[in-house]
Write a protein that binds this DNA or RNA. Structure first.
Length: 281
DNA sequence: TGCCAGGCCTTCC
DNA sequence: GGAAGGCATGGC
């Protein structure tokens, strides 16, 4: 049997993969196809079960559980946050089962550097192009897939090379970040062990990483659920719901989110974001 | 054609 | 330390 079955509670695969936190999953037939670590994954959900296929079946259940945070008791989290207020309650009602992922740190850093002042289709295109050119190729069920490259694999890639992948003015930011990693100016392994405040500071030191990008990296690849990334959508929805539709400084929005949402701010942000985007797009 | 896209950097005050 | 302006590129 070339497929495993995993029981899930309070999990929605579609919401989780389509809410905009990841850029490389494709919906083909009734499967989502993507890459986790060093393997290709084909995954679909039917009710309370996930069905997963891969070119590498070793330890597949653990790999999938780690990536989708399946061992976390999300039902109690949702039960807790619906009590915050009626707006959050409404958002949860529409997006229940949406989880933040545990994505690769390096890939997430580069992907979110590319995300600045960009749109999701073009971000995906650029990340896929970089993978195709510099990442390892894997064949599965007659198709070719590419892993996101390691820093080492990008060692000799030039600013111009990145530019030709469609990343625009962010070419030099990616180049600089990769160079700092390969020259051991920064250590990705150590960074991930840091407390959130120190880690955030380290990330902000990277070219092309500002407050929003840093918070996305923290939330989508480091499990820091207390951070609250504020992009234009979150800004809009927060102003609409909590600031009487008035233009409000991000600093003020952040203060409100921290005090009002507390340790669950990041999770609530995802539900508010996806809920409003689904309605407006 | 002009504006926008899940911001950030640089310059200037 | 806060406010403007510029920025690659594709889609509408």
């Amino acid at each position: 049997m070339n497929e495993i079955k995993i029981k899930v509670d309070c999990f929605n695969l579609k919401y989780t993969l389509e809410c905009g936190q990841c850029f490389r999953w494709k919906n083909i037939d009734n499967y989502y196809v993507g890459v986790i670590k060093d393997r290709v994954i084909k995954i679909r959900q039917d009710g309370d079960y996930l069905y997963v296929k891969s070119n590498n079946m070793d330890n597949l259940e653990k790999v999938v559980k780690d990536y989708f945070e399946l061992d976390k008791d999300y039902e109690s989290v949702e039960k807790r946050i619906v009590k915050v207020d009626d707006y959050v309650k409404e958002a949860i009602k529409n997006t229940s089962g949406l989880r933040h992922l545990n994505q690769d740190f390096f890939e997430t850093i580069i992907s979110y550097i590319i995300s600045a002042n960009n749109n999701i289709p073009r971000i995906s295109k650029s990340v896929n192009e970089i993978s195709k050119r510099y990442g390892d190729k894997i064949e599965f069920e007659g198709e070719e897939y590419y892993l996101f490259p390691t820093p080492k694999q990008l060692e000799n890639v030039s600013v111009e090379d990145y530019r030709s992948c469609g990343v625009g003015f962010r070419d030099k930011y990616i180049y600089d970040t990769v160079k700092r990693i390969n020259s051991k100016q920064i250590d990705l392994e150590k960074m991930q062990q840091m407390d959130t405040v120190s880690l955030r500071k380290e990330l902000l030191d990277l070219m092309g990483v500002g407050p929003k990008v840093a918070d996305c990296i923290l939330l989508f690849s480091c499990n820091r659920e207390e951070v609250f990334p504020i992009d234009v959508w979150v800004e809009r929805v927060m102003e609409k719901l909590y600031f009487n539709d008035q233009v409000t400084a991000k600093k003020k929005i952040l203060e409100y989110a921290n005090s009002h949402f507390g340790e669950d701010a990041g999770i609530i942000q995802q539900h508010l974001f996806y809920n409003i985007r689904e309605k407006m797009i």
